[in-house]
Structure formats: structure tokens, C-alpha cells
Design a protein around this nucleic acid. Structure first.
Lengths: 294, 294
DNA sequence: CGGATTCTTTGACTAGGGTCAAAGAAATAT
DNA sequence: ATATTTCTTTGACCCTAGTCAAAGAATCCG
């Protein structure tokens, strides 16, 4: 947790007030042009055939409420409701052609609204606005991500490692074999630690710390979900791992990485790691780094 | 109207969706902690004694709806409703001490929420976020301002000129006398033009164009409300005036300005104006500029 | 096979947010 | 002084958004 100046708090609140009043309110308005907002949102979320069950989970709606809204959209001719072929309890909802047209129209209106707003700005200003919003969004996303210590055997931990494995299997010319992953017991309890980063409840990154030998820890499997890259999350994970290593009394942290992962190497160097000779024979490593903890 | 790339439209909509979902929704939540949102908003808008009438105008509420909400707040002990001393039809609403405490608490909660969000970012990132939001807000404000041609005798035109006069009266060491302002007929119809910039319906800037002699126009009284400065609005006003001058067939535009208005001089130079000798004897001028229209 | 679970539908109900019109009280305009 | 306008209150409504519980149908589990 970092200290927060009241100036920044005031700035965030000020922007929030301005933005929701100026833009957010407009948005609601266009969406619910000729249809209640709930139905409009639902229409928007029905891509190409979803089950009511999935919609309920995704939008967090009450079963009865959803059932009624779906039926309303059906009588309006916007969607078709069918029984799931394999499970007769489930209902599938899909857009009719009319629904698709309606959605497109909704989209068109929203675009026209945004374009009308932007048209008052010259191209350079438009560019600046887009860039400022991208920066703000990147930082707000990062602020919403929490890094938590979990058990190495926890399902999210394994899910992250599986995603990590699949990810680098595609990137390494020689592929990647899962047997190289840390075993749960290596990164749990006294043996080590495992951190998972969550964004809105979903795991979007991980990192493992294990004891290499007395006083020496090893960081492994620092991974960030493709959709959460370029936010600065890897650094946060690294900081969490280093903090944990310091708390466990390690003096030195080591890690290895692969030649193809150039961004990772740059990050390690920028974080105070220096390249060292091979300290362990990992199949997939060809660069080794070390950092002395203060 | 500038062309708008679909990329910028998509960026704005994307940011909007993300922001309203992540931050806007949260905000609503805190506000309506133990009180309906409408009442919470009302409580927020009652500073130190407002009339129901003013609230109605400001928030665009139905008279009946407002009346009931105010009464609800009164029975909760949050506000006191009194009769306006000079007009017995009007009701004045003001916060009670309890209302003030409640409002402070509301504020504290909102601040805590924002601070909690920011605390995940390091100080440099907080700085960046604040700056990005300020940029975005500046540009969104500018995008929301329209510049319109109005009659020189229109009340908004005169209101702007009065504000302009008061403004520079305070800035010029020698003060400023209103008799130097353009007369309505000089900037109306065939004689000239008057532009007013509106932000959310309120005039926030102006600029006048009048015929000096055949083929030569003069720009006068370019003014921006203090709350709308540093947005780039003066340039927009200038562009509108120049466009109008070109449409009227002027070849040359002239203007004068005062030594204390250094920002204005910088803007004129940047916009292609060059300094010339005095072309007219204005009491308050000591720099004269000219621009040849293409 | 039988019981538990899952998924959906239906009925009943609530609160919030808001509109509309009538009417009374004051103030303003003529 | 009268008519008109302004401001507020009140009663009667409406819709949206949502909750809760019961019940029926299908599936899953042991």
C-alpha cells in the first residue's frame, strides 16, 4: 500500500463526477432509447447463442428477472429462445436477424454520439484525448489488480501455470514441457510461495518463489495474462516475490529466463538483477540473473 | 467540424464503458449507502441555503418529486425548510448540523474509496493518472463547448462584454471604461459579427468582429471566462472570427491589445498575426497586430 | 432406481425514481 | 382590483429494476 495524497484523491473524484455526468449519462440515454436499460444491456450481451445460465452468471442477475426479460425480448422479436440440445433444462438465447439489426442501430447511435463529441476537436486534440484516456485506463486497471499469496496447489495457481505453460510453449521454438513447472509442494508453506494477481476476481498473473539452498531463493514462472500485459503488473509480482523472499530471510534471489523473452530480461535488469553464469541446469534457460536483497 | 477517425470513437467508447463500470458504479454505491440515490444527490446539492426553485432548475427535477424528497430529508432531520423572507411562495432549504455531518461522512466514504483505489499505485503512477485525467477532462470540456454567432444586442453578448470589462478593469493598471466596448449595432448584421462560446448552455467566452474600413476587419473583445481558460477556447473563437471575416470578403484583420495581456499577444503571434504600428487610437491599446487572410 | 441438484418459470411483492394534473397561496402585470 | 403567472404541495399514477419463494422439469450421483 502506497501513501495517497489528497490531491490525487480529489483529482480522481473530480474527474469521476465530471465524466459520469457528461459522458456516462449520455451513454445510458442512447442505450435505453426505446427499450428499458436492462433489456438493452441484455441484448448487448447476447452474442451468438448463450445459455440463460451463462448470462445469469456473467451479469449476476436474478433467475426470475432474467427469465422475464428474455421473454420480453422474445415477444419483441429480438431473440429466439430454444432448448439446449444436450440438456433440456437449459435455455439457449440467440439474436434474431431483427435483433442483430437493432443492435447495430444501437451501436451506430452510440458511435454517432461519440463522433459528434470528438468532432469539435482538431485531429491533434483527438489524438491527445485518446492517449490520455488510454493512460488513465491502464493505470486504473493496474490499480484494480491485487496480488495475493495463495497455496501452490490452489486451482487458480495451477490454472495460471497451465496458461503460462501453453503461452511459452507457443513462444519457444523448442516448445515447453509441463514437467518443468514447479510442483505445488515446492511453492507452498515453508518451502516457498506462490502469488496470484487478480483482476475483478479473475486470475491474470502469477509468480513463484522457492528455496534453492539456504539463504538463496529462486523466482520462477512470472507470468501475466496477455490481456493484462503492459500495465506494469510483472513488476508488481516481482516486488511481491522479493518482499516475500526478504521476509523469509533470503539474501540472494536468482532466476533464469529464455533468450526469446527479451522484455522479461529488460525488466529484470531494470529491477536490479545482474546476469550470472548458469546456477542450475534448466532445459529452457539460457540466461541467468541474480539480485542481492538489501 | 473536424473529421473523426473510428479509432478515436472506439477509444472513447471503450474508455467510457470501462470507466462507468469500474468507477461510476462504485460511486453510486457509496452515495446511496443508507439513503436513496435521489435524496443523497439532493443532500449534496444543498449547500448553504438554496431555494427549491433553484434546485429544480439546477437538477432538472419534477416539482412534485423534489417537494417530496425535500420533505423526506426534513423528517430525517437532515435539512430545514423555511419560507423565503422576500417571497412567500419560495421555500428555502438548508442543511441542519446533522445534515452537515452526514454530508461529511458521505464525503469521507467517497474519499476512502478513491484513496483505496489509488493506494495500489506507486506515487509516480498516481501522478501520471492524475495528469492523464486532467488532460482528458480538459479536452472533453473543450469538445463540449460550441461557438455560435449571436446578435450583438443579445443578452448573452452583453453579459459576456460586461464580464470582459470587469475582468480587464481589474487587470489594467489604469482600469477600463465600458464606453470603449463595441456598440451592439457595430457587431450585428452587415456591420459585424459577435460570437459567443457556450458550455452546457452557459456563455463562457466571446469575440467580436467589426468592419474597420473596406476590406479590413477588426477583431475585438476576445474573452474567455476564467473557469474556461487554458482549454484552447480563445483559439477557437479566433478561428470562428477569422472564418467570418473571410466569408465577408475582408483581406486583412487587425486587432489591438494591451501590454499586460501577454498570453493574448503570444496567441496572436502563434496564430499568424504580425505586429504593426498603431492603426487606431484606442485608449487601452499599446500593441497592434494584423493578419492577411489567404 | 431414488434422492439430490440444477435450471427455469411463475406469482407475489417491494422500492426507487419519476410524471401529471389539480389546487392553493403569493406575487406580478395591467 | 383583477387577471395572470409563479411556486409549491398533494394525490394518483406508471415503469423499471429487482427480490424471494414455490414449483415443475431434467439431469446427476450413488
Amino acid at each position: 500500500m502506497e501513501p495517497v495524497s489528497t490531491d490525487h484523491v480529489a483529482a480522481l473524484r473530480h474527474f469521476n463526477r465530471y465524466f459520469t455526468r457528461r459522458i456516462g449519462a449520455l451513454d445510458d440515454h442512447y442505450l435505453g432509447q426505446d427499450r428499458p436499460l436492462g433489456e438493452a444491456r441484455l441484448l448487448f450481451e447476447i452474442g451468438d447463442g448463450v445459455s440463460l445460465r451463462a448470462l445469469r452468471a456473467r451479469l449476476g442477475l436474478d433467475a426470475g428477472y432474467l427469465s422475464r426479460m428474455a421473454k420480453a425480448l422474445e415477444t419483441q422479436g429480438m431473440v429466439r429462445i430454444t432448448v439446449h440440445p444436450d440438456d433440456n433444462r437449459l435455455r439457449m438465447v440467440e439474436l434474431t436477424p431483427a435483433g442483430r439489426i437493432e443492435l447495430k442501430e444501437q451501436n451506430r447511435r452510440a458511435n454517432a454520439l461519440a463522433a459528434g463529441l470528438l468532432a469539435e476537436l482538431d485531429p491533434r486534440q483527438q489524438e491527445q484525448l485518446t492517449e490520455a484516456m488510454a493512460t488513465a485506463q491502464r493505470l486504473l486497471r493496474l490499480a484494480g489488480i491485487t496480488v495475493e499469496l495463495v497455496d501452490g496447489a490452489a486451482p487458480e495457481a495451477r490454472a495460471c501455470l497451465d496458461a503460462y505453460a501453453a503461452d511459452i510453449d507457443a513462444r519457444f521454438p523448442e516448445g515447453f514441457d509441463k514437467s518443468d513447472l514447479v510442483r505445488p509442494e515446492e511453492v507452498s508453506g515453508d518451502a516457498g510461495a506462490f502469488f496470484v494477481a487478480y483482476e475483478e476476481g479473475r486470475p491474470v498473473g502469477c509468480g513463484a518463489l522457492r528455496r534453492l539452498k539456504p539463504g538463496v531463493g529462486e523466482i520462477r514462472h512470472v507470468w501475466v495474462h496477455p490481456a493484462a500485459r503492459r500495465l506494469g503488473l510483472a513488476r508488481r509480482l516481482l516486488a511481491a516475490l522479493e518482499g516475500e523472499a526478504a521476509a523469509r530471510g533470503f539474501d540472494v534471489i536468482r532466476l533464469d529466463t529464455h533468450a526469446t523473452l527479451t522484455e522479461a530480461q529488460a525488466m529484470y535488469r531494470a529491477s536490479g538483477y545482474t546476469e550470472i553464469p548458469a546456477y542450475v541446469d534448466h532445459v529452457y534457460a539460457d540466461h541467468w540473473f541474480e539480485k542481492r536483497l538489501p
